[in-house]
Amino acid sequence: MSKRKVRIATTSLAGCFGCHMSLLDIDERIVDLMAIAEFDRSPLNDKKTFTRRCDIGLVEGGCCNEDNVHVLKEFRKNCDVLVAVGQCAIMGGLPVMRNAIMHSEDPLRECLDEAYTTSKVLNPSKQIPNDPALPLILDKVYTCAQVVKIDYQIPGCPPSGDTLWAALTALIKNEEPTLDYALIKFD
């Protein structure tokens, strides 16, 4: 039986693409990776949709708008193993700071007002972006595990190339991705 390549999909939700940058920090090991794996839906190859079922899905970022939720559910549906990569996917990261807006009946409104209406940042129209093409923002930021079942998480902000390599190679070998002391970082 010829062994087929492991299919990997990646996406960035409410994240900064730092985790994807970090994936490229595996440097020349990417040659070894491409010998045994191929990327399906991923910003790295600009494939916007799944072409077939994937073995491993790597999700960066949590959910802050309805498009994030849609993409995350797509990933769950199309990936055997779904991995939350980085602190944003695991516990919300920087975007989740808006969940802590206090003393407000309507925290989301206060957040948008602060960003677009009352802030000193130049925004002559004082309008909150409301184009139909923009995905609706959620009431608060949700972690990936609050929306779908997550199988594993890789901590870090971002996880280092070595951390991602250790976790990814373990997953490709169908092993538990256990990380050594030096590879566990929450920042």
């Binding site: 602190q87 919300g92 929450f186 920042d187």
Partner: peptide, 30 residues
Amino acid sequence: LCPICEASGRCELQAMAYRLGISQAAPHPY
């Protein structure tokens, strides 16, 4: 939220999690 906390890197809670090897999600809600 370790990425935004100025205690990160000298935080005993974080360091304890590292020492105990906590890398996977606990089955609790935040």
